[in-house]
Simulated scan of single mutants.
Amino acid sequence: MGMIYIMLIVSLCLAVFFLVIFLWATKTGQYDDDYSPSVRILFEDELTTNDANKNNDGNTNS
C-alpha cells in the first residue's frame, strides 16, 4: 500500500512538472509560428470584392 502512495506522489509531481514546462514554453513563444509568414508570400492573394468589381467594369489595375 505504501508503494501506491509513493507512485501517486511521484506521478503527480511529474504531471505538475510537465504542466509548468508547457506553460513556460507557451509564455516564452516557443510555439509561435515562424515558418508560415515566410511561405505566405509565395501564394497569391484572393481578389477582394472591390478589386473584382473594378476588373468587371473594364478598368485595369496597373
Rank of each mutant, 00 (worst) to 15 (best):
residue 37 P to D: 07
residue 36 S to M: 01
residue 51 D to Q: 10
residue 27 K to C: 06
residue 49 T to Q: 13
residue 54 K to I: 15
residue 24 W to S: 14
residue 49 T to L: 11
residue 51 D to T: 13
residue 53 N to W: 12
residue 26 T to I: 10
residue 32 D to I: 12
residue 33 D to N: 06
residue 25 A to F: 12
residue 30 Q to K: 04
residue 24 W to Q: 12
residue 47 L to F: 12
residue 31 Y to A: 02
residue 52 A to L: 10
residue 23 L to H: 14
residue 33 D to P: 00
residue 56 N to A: 15
residue 41 I to S: 07
residue 51 D to S: 15
residue 28 T to P: 00
residue 45 D to S: 15
residue 31 Y to R: 01
residue 32 D to W: 02
residue 53 N to P: 04
residue 50 N to S: 09
residue 38 S to G: 02
residue 43 F to C: 05
residue 30 Q to D: 02
residue 44 E to I: 12
residue 45 D to G: 15
residue 44 E to Q: 14
residue 44 E to G: 11
residue 33 D to W: 01
residue 45 D to F: 13
residue 43 F to Q: 07
residue 39 V to F: 07
residue 51 D to H: 05
residue 29 G to S: 04
residue 40 R to K: 13
residue 33 D to A: 06
residue 35 Y to S: 06
residue 42 L to Y: 03
residue 40 R to Y: 06
residue 33 D to T: 00
residue 28 T to Q: 05
residue 36 S to Q: 03
residue 52 A to G: 04
residue 25 A to Q: 08
residue 28 T to I: 10
residue 25 A to R: 08
residue 32 D to L: 12
residue 36 S to R: 02
residue 44 E to H: 04
residue 31 Y to G: 01
residue 55 N to A: 11
residue 33 D to M: 06
residue 34 D to G: 06
residue 49 T to W: 08
residue 55 N to H: 01
residue 24 W to F: 14
residue 44 E to W: 15
residue 49 T to I: 07
residue 46 E to H: 05
residue 38 S to T: 01
residue 39 V to L: 04
residue 23 L to I: 13
residue 52 A to K: 09
residue 23 L to K: 12
residue 27 K to W: 05
residue 51 D to M: 10
residue 27 K to A: 04
residue 23 L to Y: 11
residue 28 T to V: 06
residue 24 W to D: 10
residue 51 D to V: 14
residue 26 T to S: 07
residue 27 K to F: 13
residue 43 F to V: 12
residue 40 R to H: 08
residue 44 E to F: 05
residue 40 R to P: 02
residue 45 D to M: 14
residue 54 K to V: 13
residue 55 N to S: 06
residue 26 T to A: 14
residue 36 S to T: 15
residue 46 E to A: 10
residue 51 D to I: 10
residue 35 Y to A: 05
residue 36 S to N: 01
residue 37 P to Y: 09
residue 46 E to G: 04
residue 33 D to K: 01
residue 42 L to H: 01
residue 47 L to H: 03
residue 38 S to V: 00
residue 29 G to I: 06
residue 24 W to I: 15
residue 26 T to Q: 12
residue 55 N to F: 10
residue 48 T to F: 03
residue 47 L to M: 13
residue 32 D to G: 06
residue 51 D to A: 15
residue 47 L to G: 03
residue 34 D to H: 01
residue 26 T to M: 09
residue 37 P to F: 03
residue 48 T to V: 08
residue 29 G to M: 00
residue 48 T to W: 03
residue 35 Y to R: 10
residue 36 S to H: 04
residue 49 T to V: 15
residue 55 N to M: 02
residue 39 V to Q: 06
residue 43 F to P: 07
residue 41 I to T: 05
residue 25 A to L: 11
residue 54 K to P: 04
residue 37 P to M: 04
residue 35 Y to F: 14
residue 28 T to G: 02
residue 41 I to R: 02
residue 52 A to Q: 13
residue 41 I to K: 04
residue 43 F to W: 15
residue 29 G to K: 00
residue 25 A to Y: 14
